[in-house]
């Protein structure tokens, strides 16, 4: 887990619209992660499409590596996509670690969806403070581990 250095977490709606994109990086601009999240949609759709209906694993693994960033993807059953961008380490990143990370994000998202006033089909970004705080917590904890 200590080799996971989260640079960004993105939640993308089922129509490939951004719901929430958070930049935890100190070196890259927000725009970069918006682009990465957007381009990930292609790979996620392709992967999820290949997986098809049979296995339907929500964790899609490494999507691609660009420069020093490794992009991981996850898709919920309702086709909401999570993208986590990591700084490329020179070690192996365990799938179980990544899965746990995505599970955490998924739980946060589920909590958000449980809000009866949240419009599931809306294309607006999620502005719930609680949601943002929870996602931030996921991003920052992993950062703290690596920073000392």
């Amino acid at each position: 887990m200590n080799n996971i250095n989260i640079q960004s977490i993105a939640i993308i709606g089922k129509q490939n619209n951004p719901l929430y994109i958070k930049n935890f990086s100190k070196s890259h601009p927000d725009l970069k992660f918006h682009y990465i999240a957007h381009t990930s949609c292609d790979v996620i759709e392709e992967r999820a499409g290949i997986a098809g209906s049979e296995t339907a694993d929500t964790y899609l693994g490494l999507l691609y590596v660009m420069e020093d960033l490794a992009v991981y993807g996850y898709i919920t059953n309702t086709k909401v996509k999570f993208v986590v961008v990591l700084l490329v380490p020179d070690t192996v990143i365990k799938n179980t670690d990544m899965k746990n990370l995505f599970k955490k994000i998924h739980n946060v998202y589920i909590n958000q969806v449980c809000n009866p006033f949240y419009n599931l089909d809306g294309k607006k970004s999620i502005i719930s403070k609680r949601f943002i705080a929870s996602i931030d917590a996921i991003g920052i904890t992993s950062d703290d581990v690596i920073s000392p």
């Binding site: 694993d57 693994g61 490494l62 691609y64 590596v65 660009m66 420069e67 490794a70 990591l86 490329v88 380490p89 020179d90 070690t91 192996v92 990143i93 365990k94 799938n95 179980t96 670690d97």
Partner: peptide, 23 residues
């Protein structure tokens, strides 16, 4: 089965040339 694999080293994954051209 990707689930069996314990992990992946992102720096060791060869991708298609587009990424390297981009770099």
């Amino acid at each position: 089965n990707p689930n069996i694999g314990s992990g992946i080293n992102p720096s060791m994954v060869l991708q298609h040339p587009g990424f390297y051209y981009f770099m």
